[in-house]
Design a protein around this nucleic acid. Structure first.
Length: 431
RNA sequence: UCCUCGGUAGCUCAAUCGGCAGAGCGUGUGGCUGUUAACCACAGUGUUGCAGGUUCAAGUCCUGCCCGGGGAGCCA
Protein backbone atom coordinates (compact mmCIF):
# COMPACT_ATOMS: atom_id res chain seq x y z
CA UNK A 1 0.00 0.00 0.00
CA UNK A 2 1.32 3.40 -1.01
CA UNK A 3 0.56 6.41 1.14
CA UNK A 4 -2.45 8.46 0.04
CA UNK A 5 -1.27 12.04 -0.32
CA UNK A 6 -3.14 15.20 -1.33
CA UNK A 7 -1.76 17.33 -4.14
CA UNK A 8 -1.15 20.34 -1.88
CA UNK A 9 1.28 18.25 0.21
CA UNK A 10 3.22 16.65 -2.67
CA UNK A 11 6.24 18.90 -2.29
CA UNK A 12 6.95 17.12 1.01
CA UNK A 13 7.14 13.74 -0.71
CA UNK A 14 9.75 14.30 -3.42
CA UNK A 15 11.52 10.99 -4.15
CA UNK A 16 8.73 8.88 -2.61
CA UNK A 17 6.10 6.78 -4.30
CA UNK A 18 2.61 7.92 -3.35
CA UNK A 19 -1.07 7.38 -4.09
CA UNK A 20 -3.25 10.17 -5.48
CA UNK A 21 -7.03 9.93 -5.70
CA UNK A 22 -8.71 12.39 -7.99
CA UNK A 23 -10.26 13.37 -11.28
CA UNK A 24 -8.81 13.98 -14.74
CA UNK A 25 -8.47 17.72 -15.20
CA UNK A 26 -6.82 17.54 -18.60
CA UNK A 27 -5.16 15.00 -20.91
CA UNK A 28 -2.28 15.45 -23.31
CA UNK A 29 -0.34 13.01 -25.40
CA UNK A 30 2.67 13.22 -27.62
CA UNK A 31 3.66 9.99 -29.33
CA UNK A 32 5.27 7.92 -26.64
CA UNK A 33 4.60 10.31 -23.73
CA UNK A 34 1.25 10.72 -22.01
CA UNK A 35 0.23 13.34 -19.46
CA UNK A 36 -2.69 13.27 -17.04
CA UNK A 37 -3.41 16.46 -15.12
CA UNK A 38 -5.02 15.16 -11.98
CA UNK A 39 -7.24 17.27 -9.73
CA UNK A 40 -8.00 16.15 -6.17
CA UNK A 41 -9.77 19.14 -4.62
CA UNK A 42 -6.59 20.54 -3.08
CA UNK A 43 -4.75 21.24 -6.31
CA UNK A 44 -3.78 19.96 -9.73
CA UNK A 45 -0.69 17.87 -10.43
CA UNK A 46 0.81 16.82 -13.74
CA UNK A 47 1.46 13.11 -14.00
CA UNK A 48 3.42 11.53 -16.82
CA UNK A 49 4.10 8.14 -18.34
CA UNK A 50 6.43 6.92 -21.03
CA UNK A 51 6.45 3.84 -23.18
CA UNK A 52 8.80 2.63 -25.87
CA UNK A 53 5.80 1.45 -27.89
CA UNK A 54 2.61 3.31 -28.57
CA UNK A 55 0.35 0.33 -27.89
CA UNK A 56 1.48 -0.61 -24.38
CA UNK A 57 -1.31 -1.76 -22.01
CA UNK A 58 -0.93 1.43 -19.95
CA UNK A 59 -1.31 3.62 -23.01
CA UNK A 60 -4.40 1.68 -24.00
CA UNK A 61 -5.84 2.38 -20.56
CA UNK A 62 -4.87 6.04 -20.88
CA UNK A 63 -6.69 6.26 -24.19
CA UNK A 64 -9.94 5.22 -22.48
CA UNK A 65 -9.77 8.25 -20.17
CA UNK A 66 -11.92 11.31 -20.65
CA UNK A 67 -12.04 14.65 -18.83
CA UNK A 68 -13.30 14.35 -15.23
CA UNK A 69 -12.92 10.56 -15.15
CA UNK A 70 -12.12 9.46 -11.61
CA UNK A 71 -8.72 7.86 -11.18
CA UNK A 72 -6.50 6.43 -8.42
CA UNK A 73 -2.89 6.65 -9.38
CA UNK A 74 0.47 5.56 -7.97
CA UNK A 75 3.83 7.01 -8.85
CA UNK A 76 7.05 8.64 -7.82
CA UNK A 77 7.10 12.33 -6.94
CA UNK A 78 9.85 14.38 -8.54
CA UNK A 79 10.75 18.00 -8.94
CA UNK A 80 10.15 19.10 -12.50
CA UNK A 81 10.55 22.68 -13.69
CA UNK A 82 8.56 22.03 -16.84
CA UNK A 83 5.45 20.94 -14.91
CA UNK A 84 2.84 23.41 -13.59
CA UNK A 85 3.49 23.64 -9.86
CA UNK A 86 7.03 22.36 -10.43
CA UNK A 87 6.24 18.93 -9.00
CA UNK A 88 5.35 15.98 -11.18
CA UNK A 89 4.44 12.34 -10.70
CA UNK A 90 5.97 9.62 -12.81
CA UNK A 91 3.13 7.13 -13.13
CA UNK A 92 3.78 3.55 -12.07
CA UNK A 93 0.18 2.43 -12.43
CA UNK A 94 -3.37 3.72 -12.15
CA UNK A 95 -6.90 2.41 -11.67
CA UNK A 96 -9.91 3.87 -13.37
CA UNK A 97 -12.76 4.33 -10.87
CA UNK A 98 -15.24 5.60 -13.45
CA UNK A 99 -15.00 6.78 -17.04
CA UNK A 100 -16.70 10.16 -17.22
CA UNK A 101 -19.30 10.81 -19.86
CA UNK A 102 -18.50 13.68 -22.19
CA UNK A 103 -17.99 16.60 -19.80
CA UNK A 104 -20.15 19.58 -20.72
CA UNK A 105 -17.86 22.35 -19.44
CA UNK A 106 -14.97 23.14 -21.78
CA UNK A 107 -11.77 25.01 -21.05
CA UNK A 108 -13.04 28.16 -22.71
CA UNK A 109 -15.61 30.90 -22.23
CA UNK A 110 -19.19 29.87 -21.59
CA UNK A 111 -22.26 31.99 -21.11
CA UNK A 112 -23.71 32.35 -17.63
CA UNK A 113 -27.00 30.90 -18.86
CA UNK A 114 -25.14 27.72 -19.76
CA UNK A 115 -23.05 27.55 -16.59
CA UNK A 116 -25.66 28.31 -13.92
CA UNK A 117 -27.70 25.11 -14.49
CA UNK A 118 -24.35 23.27 -14.32
CA UNK A 119 -23.31 24.91 -11.07
CA UNK A 120 -22.82 21.49 -9.43
CA UNK A 121 -20.06 20.82 -11.99
CA UNK A 122 -18.90 24.39 -12.49
CA UNK A 123 -17.51 24.51 -8.93
CA UNK A 124 -14.79 22.08 -10.13
CA UNK A 125 -13.38 24.79 -12.39
CA UNK A 126 -10.22 26.53 -11.27
CA UNK A 127 -11.67 30.00 -10.72
CA UNK A 128 -14.89 28.91 -9.06
CA UNK A 129 -12.85 26.58 -6.86
CA UNK A 130 -10.54 29.45 -5.91
CA UNK A 131 -13.46 31.74 -5.01
CA UNK A 132 -15.03 29.12 -2.77
CA UNK A 133 -11.69 28.33 -1.09
CA UNK A 134 -11.44 32.05 -0.32
CA UNK A 135 -14.97 31.95 1.07
CA UNK A 136 -13.86 29.24 3.48
CA UNK A 137 -10.83 31.30 4.54
CA UNK A 138 -12.95 34.44 4.96
CA UNK A 139 -15.48 32.63 7.15
CA UNK A 140 -12.73 31.34 9.43
CA UNK A 141 -11.28 34.84 9.71
CA UNK A 142 -14.69 36.22 10.65
CA UNK A 143 -15.03 33.70 13.47
CA UNK A 144 -11.40 34.22 14.53
CA UNK A 145 -11.96 37.98 14.81
CA UNK A 146 -14.96 37.68 17.11
CA UNK A 147 -13.24 35.03 19.19
CA UNK A 148 -10.31 37.41 19.69
CA UNK A 149 -12.60 40.33 20.51
CA UNK A 150 -14.44 38.30 23.14
CA UNK A 151 -17.78 37.95 21.34
CA UNK A 152 -19.86 34.82 21.90
CA UNK A 153 -21.53 33.07 18.99
CA UNK A 154 -25.24 32.81 19.77
CA UNK A 155 -27.27 31.42 16.89
CA UNK A 156 -30.55 33.05 15.94
CA UNK A 157 -33.52 31.23 14.40
CA UNK A 158 -34.20 30.97 10.68
CA UNK A 159 -37.92 30.29 11.08
CA UNK A 160 -39.44 33.32 12.74
CA UNK A 161 -42.96 34.40 13.68
CA UNK A 162 -42.70 37.86 12.15
CA UNK A 163 -40.40 40.19 10.34
CA UNK A 164 -37.36 41.90 11.80
CA UNK A 165 -37.55 44.93 9.59
CA UNK A 166 -41.12 44.55 8.50
CA UNK A 167 -40.85 44.81 4.78
CA UNK A 168 -43.08 42.90 2.43
CA UNK A 169 -40.10 40.93 1.24
CA UNK A 170 -40.41 37.89 3.45
CA UNK A 171 -40.66 34.28 2.41
CA UNK A 172 -43.73 32.85 4.03
CA UNK A 173 -44.08 29.19 4.89
CA UNK A 174 -46.48 26.97 6.76
CA UNK A 175 -45.66 26.16 10.36
CA UNK A 176 -48.27 23.53 11.19
CA UNK A 177 -51.34 25.66 11.87
CA UNK A 178 -49.43 28.95 11.94
CA UNK A 179 -47.49 31.03 9.47
CA UNK A 180 -43.73 31.36 9.70
CA UNK A 181 -41.24 33.51 7.83
CA UNK A 182 -37.65 32.89 6.81
CA UNK A 183 -35.33 35.19 8.71
CA UNK A 184 -34.11 38.39 7.08
CA UNK A 185 -31.79 39.22 9.97
CA UNK A 186 -30.84 37.89 13.37
CA UNK A 187 -30.75 41.38 14.77
CA UNK A 188 -33.69 41.40 17.19
CA UNK A 189 -32.65 38.09 18.74
CA UNK A 190 -29.08 39.38 18.86
CA UNK A 191 -30.24 42.21 21.07
CA UNK A 192 -31.77 39.75 23.52
CA UNK A 193 -28.58 37.67 23.38
CA UNK A 194 -26.40 40.72 24.05
CA UNK A 195 -28.34 41.36 27.26
CA UNK A 196 -27.50 37.79 28.32
CA UNK A 197 -23.90 37.49 27.09
CA UNK A 198 -22.65 41.08 26.69
CA UNK A 199 -20.96 40.76 23.31
CA UNK A 200 -22.49 38.36 20.80
CA UNK A 201 -22.65 37.65 17.10
CA UNK A 202 -24.69 35.48 14.81
CA UNK A 203 -23.67 34.20 11.42
CA UNK A 204 -26.03 32.43 9.11
CA UNK A 205 -28.15 32.54 6.00
CA UNK A 206 -30.81 35.21 5.56
CA UNK A 207 -33.59 35.42 3.00
CA UNK A 208 -35.08 38.34 1.14
CA UNK A 209 -37.92 37.91 -1.29
CA UNK A 210 -36.93 41.05 -3.16
CA UNK A 211 -37.28 41.09 -6.91
CA UNK A 212 -33.81 42.52 -7.22
CA UNK A 213 -31.89 41.69 -10.32
CA UNK A 214 -28.46 43.22 -10.01
CA UNK A 215 -24.91 42.00 -9.57
CA UNK A 216 -25.06 42.89 -5.86
CA UNK A 217 -28.15 40.92 -4.86
CA UNK A 218 -28.94 37.38 -3.81
CA UNK A 219 -32.21 35.98 -2.50
CA UNK A 220 -30.35 33.83 0.04
CA UNK A 221 -27.18 35.30 1.49
CA UNK A 222 -25.06 35.00 4.62
CA UNK A 223 -24.80 37.76 7.16
CA UNK A 224 -22.48 38.27 10.14
CA UNK A 225 -24.14 40.35 12.84
CA UNK A 226 -22.35 41.45 16.01
CA UNK A 227 -24.26 43.14 18.82
CA UNK A 228 -22.80 44.46 22.08
CA UNK A 229 -24.38 45.74 25.25
CA UNK A 230 -23.17 49.11 26.55
CA UNK A 231 -21.50 49.80 23.16
CA UNK A 232 -22.33 53.22 21.75
CA UNK A 233 -22.24 54.33 18.13
CA UNK A 234 -18.52 55.19 18.29
CA UNK A 235 -17.62 51.87 19.93
CA UNK A 236 -19.42 49.85 17.30
CA UNK A 237 -18.08 51.77 14.30
CA UNK A 238 -14.65 50.97 15.77
CA UNK A 239 -15.49 47.27 15.84
CA UNK A 240 -16.59 47.47 12.21
CA UNK A 241 -13.34 49.17 11.25
CA UNK A 242 -11.11 46.64 13.00
CA UNK A 243 -13.26 43.80 11.69
CA UNK A 244 -13.03 44.76 8.04
CA UNK A 245 -9.31 45.43 8.26
CA UNK A 246 -8.77 42.06 9.93
CA UNK A 247 -10.78 39.90 7.57
CA UNK A 248 -9.39 41.58 4.45
CA UNK A 249 -5.74 41.55 5.52
CA UNK A 250 -5.87 38.00 6.90
CA UNK A 251 -7.77 36.62 3.91
CA UNK A 252 -5.39 38.09 1.34
CA UNK A 253 -2.45 36.77 3.36
CA UNK A 254 -3.78 33.24 3.70
CA UNK A 255 -5.50 33.10 0.34
CA UNK A 256 -2.68 34.43 -1.84
CA UNK A 257 -2.53 31.41 -4.15
CA UNK A 258 -6.25 31.63 -4.87
CA UNK A 259 -6.20 35.39 -5.44
CA UNK A 260 -3.40 34.79 -7.95
CA UNK A 261 -5.60 32.32 -9.85
CA UNK A 262 -8.26 35.03 -9.93
CA UNK A 263 -5.66 37.60 -11.08
CA UNK A 264 -6.81 39.96 -8.34
CA UNK A 265 -4.87 43.21 -8.09
CA UNK A 266 -3.99 43.35 -4.38
CA UNK A 267 -2.75 46.94 -4.17
CA UNK A 268 -6.21 48.33 -3.25
CA UNK A 269 -6.86 45.57 -0.73
CA UNK A 270 -3.51 45.99 0.99
CA UNK A 271 -4.54 49.57 1.64
CA UNK A 272 -7.61 48.50 3.64
CA UNK A 273 -6.33 49.53 7.06
CA UNK A 274 -8.02 51.53 9.81
CA UNK A 275 -8.96 54.31 10.12
CA UNK A 276 -11.50 54.48 7.29
CA UNK A 277 -12.82 57.85 6.14
CA UNK A 278 -16.21 58.93 7.47
CA UNK A 279 -18.76 61.17 5.88
CA UNK A 280 -22.17 62.23 7.17
CA UNK A 281 -25.22 61.48 5.05
CA UNK A 282 -25.94 65.17 4.46
CA UNK A 283 -22.34 65.77 3.30
CA UNK A 284 -22.45 62.71 1.07
CA UNK A 285 -25.44 64.34 -0.59
CA UNK A 286 -23.47 67.45 -1.35
CA UNK A 287 -20.99 65.26 -3.26
CA UNK A 288 -23.81 63.52 -5.09
CA UNK A 289 -25.36 66.82 -6.15
CA UNK A 290 -22.01 68.03 -7.49
CA UNK A 291 -21.73 64.81 -9.46
CA UNK A 292 -25.20 65.27 -10.90
CA UNK A 293 -27.05 62.50 -9.10
CA UNK A 294 -30.83 62.70 -9.48
CA UNK A 295 -31.57 61.08 -6.12
CA UNK A 296 -33.61 63.54 -3.99
CA UNK A 297 -32.11 64.45 -0.62
CA UNK A 298 -33.73 62.49 2.20
CA UNK A 299 -33.94 59.32 0.10
CA UNK A 300 -31.64 56.34 0.37
CA UNK A 301 -28.78 56.07 -2.11
CA UNK A 302 -29.01 54.02 -5.27
CA UNK A 303 -26.27 51.68 -6.44
CA UNK A 304 -24.75 54.33 -8.70
CA UNK A 305 -24.77 56.84 -5.83
CA UNK A 306 -22.78 54.42 -3.69
CA UNK A 307 -20.25 54.03 -6.48
CA UNK A 308 -19.89 57.82 -6.82
CA UNK A 309 -19.22 58.24 -3.10
CA UNK A 310 -16.84 55.30 -2.76
CA UNK A 311 -14.87 56.38 -5.82
CA UNK A 312 -13.89 59.55 -3.91
CA UNK A 313 -11.88 57.46 -1.45
CA UNK A 314 -9.18 54.82 -1.79
CA UNK A 315 -10.49 52.84 1.20
CA UNK A 316 -13.90 51.66 2.35
CA UNK A 317 -15.87 54.68 3.53
CA UNK A 318 -18.41 55.04 6.33
CA UNK A 319 -21.53 57.03 5.61
CA UNK A 320 -23.13 58.00 8.92
CA UNK A 321 -26.20 59.69 10.41
CA UNK A 322 -28.91 58.64 7.96
CA UNK A 323 -32.36 60.26 8.17
CA UNK A 324 -34.65 58.41 10.56
CA UNK A 325 -37.44 58.05 8.02
CA UNK A 326 -35.42 55.87 5.63
CA UNK A 327 -33.99 53.62 8.34
CA UNK A 328 -35.29 50.86 10.60
CA UNK A 329 -37.48 51.78 13.59
CA UNK A 330 -35.00 50.61 16.25
CA UNK A 331 -32.21 53.06 15.38
CA UNK A 332 -31.25 55.57 18.06
CA UNK A 333 -31.96 59.20 17.09
CA UNK A 334 -28.97 61.55 16.86
CA UNK A 335 -29.07 63.71 20.04
CA UNK A 336 -28.00 66.71 17.95
CA UNK A 337 -30.88 66.30 15.48
CA UNK A 338 -33.53 63.64 16.12
CA UNK A 339 -34.54 63.58 12.45
CA UNK A 340 -31.27 61.71 11.90
CA UNK A 341 -29.99 58.49 13.46
CA UNK A 342 -26.80 57.16 15.00
CA UNK A 343 -26.36 54.84 12.03
CA UNK A 344 -23.56 53.89 9.68
CA UNK A 345 -23.10 52.08 6.41
CA UNK A 346 -19.75 50.95 5.07
CA UNK A 347 -19.30 51.24 1.32
CA UNK A 348 -16.69 48.99 -0.28
CA UNK A 349 -14.44 50.47 -2.98
CA UNK A 350 -14.51 49.58 -6.67
CA UNK A 351 -18.30 49.64 -6.94
CA UNK A 352 -19.01 46.68 -4.67
CA UNK A 353 -21.52 48.73 -2.71
CA UNK A 354 -22.76 48.61 0.84
CA UNK A 355 -21.20 45.76 2.82
CA UNK A 356 -22.17 46.91 6.33
CA UNK A 357 -25.22 48.54 7.83
CA UNK A 358 -25.38 49.25 11.54
CA UNK A 359 -26.46 51.56 14.32
CA UNK A 360 -26.87 52.28 17.98
CA UNK A 361 -30.27 50.92 19.09
CA UNK A 362 -33.06 52.66 20.95
CA UNK A 363 -33.02 51.52 24.58
CA UNK A 364 -35.82 53.66 25.97
CA UNK A 365 -39.09 51.72 26.20
CA UNK A 366 -41.46 54.58 25.38
CA UNK A 367 -39.43 55.85 22.43
CA UNK A 368 -39.08 52.37 20.97
CA UNK A 369 -42.80 51.71 21.30
CA UNK A 370 -43.58 55.03 19.63
CA UNK A 371 -41.22 54.35 16.70
CA UNK A 372 -42.52 50.83 16.36
CA UNK A 373 -46.07 52.05 16.05
CA UNK A 374 -45.07 54.83 13.64
CA UNK A 375 -43.64 52.16 11.36
CA UNK A 376 -46.91 50.27 11.48
CA UNK A 377 -45.97 47.31 13.63
CA UNK A 378 -48.12 45.93 16.38
CA UNK A 379 -47.08 45.93 19.99
CA UNK A 380 -48.37 42.36 20.25
CA UNK A 381 -45.84 40.94 17.72
CA UNK A 382 -42.91 42.66 19.39
CA UNK A 383 -43.82 42.05 23.00
CA UNK A 384 -40.73 39.99 23.72
CA UNK A 385 -38.52 42.56 22.02
CA UNK A 386 -40.02 45.37 24.05
CA UNK A 387 -39.35 43.29 27.18
CA UNK A 388 -35.64 43.95 26.63
CA UNK A 389 -36.34 47.62 27.38
CA UNK A 390 -38.15 46.70 30.57
CA UNK A 391 -35.66 44.43 32.29
CA UNK A 392 -32.34 46.22 32.67
CA UNK A 393 -32.27 48.10 29.39
CA UNK A 394 -28.89 49.48 28.35
CA UNK A 395 -27.51 51.33 25.32
CA UNK A 396 -26.29 48.84 22.74
CA UNK A 397 -25.15 48.77 19.14
CA UNK A 398 -24.56 46.37 16.31
CA UNK A 399 -24.24 45.91 12.60
CA UNK A 400 -24.59 43.35 9.83
CA UNK A 401 -22.03 42.48 7.18
CA UNK A 402 -23.02 40.78 3.94
CA UNK A 403 -20.60 37.92 3.42
CA UNK A 404 -21.04 37.51 -0.32
CA UNK A 405 -20.64 41.20 -1.10
CA UNK A 406 -17.48 41.22 0.97
CA UNK A 407 -16.17 38.13 -0.79
CA UNK A 408 -17.06 39.50 -4.21
CA UNK A 409 -15.07 42.61 -3.35
CA UNK A 410 -12.04 40.69 -2.03
CA UNK A 411 -11.98 38.31 -4.99
CA UNK A 412 -12.71 41.06 -7.50
CA UNK A 413 -15.40 39.02 -9.25
CA UNK A 414 -18.00 40.85 -11.25
CA UNK A 415 -21.15 39.25 -9.90
CA UNK A 416 -22.13 38.21 -6.37
CA UNK A 417 -23.69 34.94 -7.59
CA UNK A 418 -20.22 33.38 -7.86
CA UNK A 419 -19.49 34.17 -4.19
CA UNK A 420 -21.79 31.42 -2.87
CA UNK A 421 -21.74 27.73 -3.82
CA UNK A 422 -25.37 27.50 -4.91
CA UNK A 423 -26.75 30.99 -5.55
CA UNK A 424 -30.44 31.65 -5.19
CA UNK A 425 -31.20 34.45 -7.58
CA UNK A 426 -34.42 35.85 -8.97
CA UNK A 427 -36.20 32.94 -10.73
CA UNK A 428 -33.18 30.61 -10.39
CA UNK A 429 -33.56 27.86 -7.82
CA UNK A 430 -31.80 25.03 -9.69
CA UNK A 431 -29.57 23.22 -8.88
C1' U B 1 -42.85 45.86 -12.27
C1' C B 2 -40.12 48.90 -15.99
C1' C B 3 -36.05 49.76 -19.63
C1' U B 4 -32.58 47.30 -22.80
C1' C B 5 -29.98 43.40 -25.48
C1' G B 6 -30.31 38.55 -27.06
C1' G B 7 -32.13 33.12 -28.48
C1' U B 8 -28.57 29.79 -35.27
C1' A B 9 -24.43 22.68 -34.49
C1' G B 10 -22.83 19.91 -27.76
C1' C B 11 -20.31 25.10 -26.60
C1' U B 12 -18.79 30.27 -28.32
C1' C B 13 -20.27 32.87 -32.34
C1' A B 14 -20.81 34.40 -37.95
C1' A B 15 -24.22 34.72 -42.07
C1' U B 16 -23.64 41.94 -46.46
C1' C B 17 -29.78 44.79 -49.37
C1' G B 18 -34.64 39.24 -47.91
C1' G B 19 -31.34 34.98 -52.29
C1' C B 20 -27.36 27.52 -51.43
C1' A B 21 -26.88 27.91 -42.97
C1' G B 22 -20.67 27.91 -41.61
C1' A B 23 -16.22 28.90 -38.60
C1' G B 24 -13.50 27.90 -34.14
C1' C B 25 -13.69 24.83 -29.93
C1' G B 26 -15.32 20.11 -28.08
C1' U B 27 -16.07 14.90 -29.95
C1' G B 28 -14.20 10.62 -33.22
C1' U B 29 -10.03 8.45 -36.19
C1' G B 30 -4.80 8.70 -37.44
C1' G B 31 0.23 10.99 -36.41
C1' C B 32 4.05 12.92 -33.06
C1' U B 33 9.30 11.06 -26.89
C1' G B 34 8.13 16.94 -22.73
C1' U B 35 3.19 18.60 -23.31
C1' U B 36 1.38 23.49 -20.67
C1' A B 37 -6.50 25.54 -22.75
C1' A B 38 -0.36 21.16 -26.74
C1' C B 39 0.17 20.60 -31.96
C1' C B 40 -0.72 18.48 -37.24
C1' A B 41 -4.21 15.79 -40.75
C1' C B 42 -9.03 13.92 -41.75
C1' A B 43 -14.38 13.21 -40.31
C1' G B 44 -19.73 13.53 -38.44
C1' U B 45 -23.00 17.38 -36.50
C1' G B 46 -29.02 21.86 -37.66
C1' U B 47 -37.28 21.74 -36.32
C1' U B 48 -32.23 29.01 -36.90
C1' G B 49 -36.75 29.55 -29.15
C1' C B 50 -42.45 28.76 -30.26
C1' A B 51 -46.98 30.17 -33.13
C1' G B 52 -48.80 32.93 -37.00
C1' G B 53 -48.21 36.65 -41.10
C1' U B 54 -45.90 39.33 -45.59
C1' U B 55 -43.06 37.46 -49.96
C1' C B 56 -41.36 33.93 -55.93
C1' A B 57 -38.03 33.38 -51.65
C1' A B 58 -37.49 34.57 -44.33
C1' G B 59 -32.07 33.02 -39.67
C1' U B 60 -32.94 38.08 -41.70
C1' C B 61 -39.17 41.91 -42.25
C1' C B 62 -44.15 42.21 -39.19
C1' U B 63 -47.49 40.50 -34.84
C1' G B 64 -48.05 37.66 -30.43
C1' C B 65 -45.93 34.44 -26.87
C1' C B 66 -41.87 31.79 -24.15
C1' C B 67 -36.91 31.79 -22.18
C1' G B 68 -32.24 34.10 -20.86
C1' G B 69 -28.45 38.21 -20.10
C1' G B 70 -27.54 43.36 -18.51
C1' G B 71 -29.58 47.48 -15.86
C1' A B 72 -33.33 50.38 -12.93
C1' G B 73 -36.53 50.37 -8.89
C1' C B 74 -36.27 47.92 -4.05
C1' C B 75 -32.44 46.40 -0.76
C1' A B 76 -27.37 44.13 2.36
Amino acid sequence: MKKWVYVKDLKNYVGETVEIKGWVYNLRSSGKVRFILLRDGTGIVQTVMFSPTKDSPQFKKFDELSLESSVILWGKVKEEKRAPGEVEIEIEDFDIVQISEEYPIQKKEHSIGFLMPLRHLWIRSKKQHAILKLRDILIWKVREFYKKEGFTLVDTPILTPSSCEGTTTLFETEYFDQKAYLSQSGQLYNEANAMAFGKVYCFGPTFRAEKSKTRRHLIEFWMVEPEAAYYRFEDMIGVAERFVEYIVQETIKEGKEYLEILERDLSQLENVKAPFPRIKYTDAFKILKEEGSQTPEGEDFGGTDETIISSKFDKPVFVTHFPAKIKAFYMQPDPEDPDYTLSFDLLAPEGYGEIIGGSERIYDYDLLLKKLKEHGYTEEDYKWYLDLRKYGSVPHSGFGLGLERTLAWITGIHHIREAIPYPRTLYNLYP
